[in-house]
């Protein structure tokens, strides 16, 4: 039974992710004063991509790249408790497991893109990894106070501990929440930090050589990625008690991210890294100091 439940769960999250992407395009369109595609457009795109007949690959690793990417993000999903119920019953997600699994996705895509020996892809991967040097540390330092406050390293316990409204992480640690938002913008690769996929500069970065079904898989990867990253933030800072609250939370956070994405220009890579070591780092440090004072 659990295997079927397992696939259904994955399918559900992927579809919701795609719908989120549709909403994102709709919202950006409306900001730009135009109607924008129907919400289910990404699902159509994915179906079209999987329908493509002749797609090109540059080698085994090139074709396996998206596969590993999707595996990575899917396994992170399974270790991330959505609201109060987690698919893998006996094992509650641990912060470090999730943080390290988050890296498997980009690593897989990086390997695939590298194999394509297209300079655009490799420059993109160099930028993505350097950016990670910026936002990953901020995200970790931002979430640390919450875990430290509740004396646990497992996300599931954090959710349970947060319970009713006044106990939300965001309320107790507003500064860290702000820093986490900055980090989330980078982690999602949205506009101000869309340096890796910058279509104008490096022809959509790593996906430059991917077409057809590979691009489809990568779209799925992106969709699940949205849910996982925003979900991680929501779990830590809002502790949704059940799955509905979880998805509402993720939608709100995603909505904020999209708003920022629609209006912001794009950083150069060293500006982005320098930016991250400026205000967000300061905020994160303040958050940690707050925990120390609080305790």
């Amino acid at each position: 039974m659990s295997i079927l439940y397992f696939f259904l769960y994955l399918l559900l999250v992927t579809v919701i992710g795609l719908l989120y992407m549709g909403v994102a395009r709709k919202v950006t369109a409306h900001i730009q004063n135009r109607y924008g595609p129907p919400i289910y457009q990404p699902i159509l795109d994915v179906l079209k991509l999987f329908g493509k007949r002749h797609t090109v690959t540059h080698g085994v690793m090139h074709s396996l790249g998206p596969v590993i990417a999707y595996t990575g993000i899917a396994s992170t999903l399974l270790f991330l408790p959505l609201g109060n119920h987690t698919p893998l019953l006996h094992f509650k997600g641990d912060l470090f497991v999730v943080l390290y699994l988050l890296v498997v996705g980009p690593l897989g895509m990086a390997l695939g893109a590298g194999e394509s020996s297209n300079p655009n892809a490799t420059i993109a991967m160099a930028r993505a990894l350097s950016l990670m040097l910026g936002y990953e540390i901020i995200f970790f330092m931002a979430t640390l106070p919450v875990f430290y406050h509740y004396h646990t390293a497992s996300i599931y316990k954090v959710i349970q501990a947060q319970g009713v409204f006044p106990h939300w992480g965001a309320i107790i640690f507003p500064i860290s929440f702000l820093a986490a938002l900055f980090a989330l913008q980078g982690m999602m690769g949205e506009k101000p930090f869309e340096i890796a996929i910058a279509p104008h500069e490096i022809a959509s970065g790593p996906m430059v050589e991917y077409g057809g079904k590979y691009l489809g898989l990568l779209q799925l990867w992106h969709a699940v990625g949205i849910i996982v990253e925003t979900g991680l933030l929501v779990d830590i800072f809002f502790g949704p008690q059940n799955i509905i609250w979880f998805f509402i939370g993720t939608f709100i956070v995603f909505y904020v991210v999209i708003l920022v994405n629609a209006v912001m220009p794009r950083f150069r890579i060293e500006q982005a890294v320098r930016f991250y070591w400026g205000i967000p780092l300061l905020l994160a440090i303040l958050g940690i100091l707050q925990v120390y004072i609080w305790r």
Binding site: F7, L10, F50, G51, K52, R53, H54, T55, V56, T57, H58, G59, S63, P66, V67, I68, Y70, T71, G72, A74, S75, L78, F79, L88, V104, G212, K213, Y214, G216, L217
Partner: peptide, 22 residues
């Protein structure tokens, strides 16, 4: 879980269309 998911996405990869080496 990682191996399980790898096989899952590998199956997705195999179902759809043939790709030739460039």
């Amino acid at each position: 879980t990682m191996t399980l998911l790898f096989t899952l996405s590998f199956i997705i990869y195999l179902i759809f269309g043939k790709s030739y080496r460039a």
